[in-house]
């Protein structure tokens, strides 16, 4: 166990906890109406879309096509089917890509 490594892990841990606790400084009852409420309501979709967008739109056509297939499946099917469709189509299209 080296002291430098422990210090680095502690710094990582504290930095992460700081971001996880940041929401606590928003007062309770804040953003119950108007534009602010709309902003908070949009947060899950905004964060999730930002997480996946670079992979889906800027990696390559197999990822984009697999995401499209996943999206279509997601419209009607339960999540487990969505995951299976996503993994299977990504694996298949990636395997196919170098042959084209």
């Amino acid at each position: 166990m080296s002291a430098d490594t422990l210090a680095a892990i502690a710094a990582m841990s504290l930095a992460t906890i700081a971001t996880r606790f940041a929401g606590l400084i928003v007062p309770a009852g804040f953003a119950r109406r108007g534009r602010l409420e709309a902003a908070f309501e949009a947060m899950p979709v905004a964060v999730l879309a930002a997480i996946i967008a670079p992979t889906v739109l800027a990696t390559g056509w197999p990822e984009t096509a697999a995401a499209l297939i996943t999206l279509i499946v997601a419209w009607r099917s339960p999540l487990i089917a969505v995951v299976v469709a996503g993994v299977a189509s990504a694996a298949a299209l990636r395997a196919l890509a170098p042959m084209l």
């Binding site: 995951v83 990504a90 990636r94």
Partner: peptide, 15 residues
């Protein structure tokens, strides 16, 4: 395609 499991989960949740 394991990384795509997460992408698919997120797509499902967004939808």
């Amino acid at each position: 395609g394991f990384d795509f499991a997460f992408i698919a989960i997120f797509i499902g949740l967004i939808v």
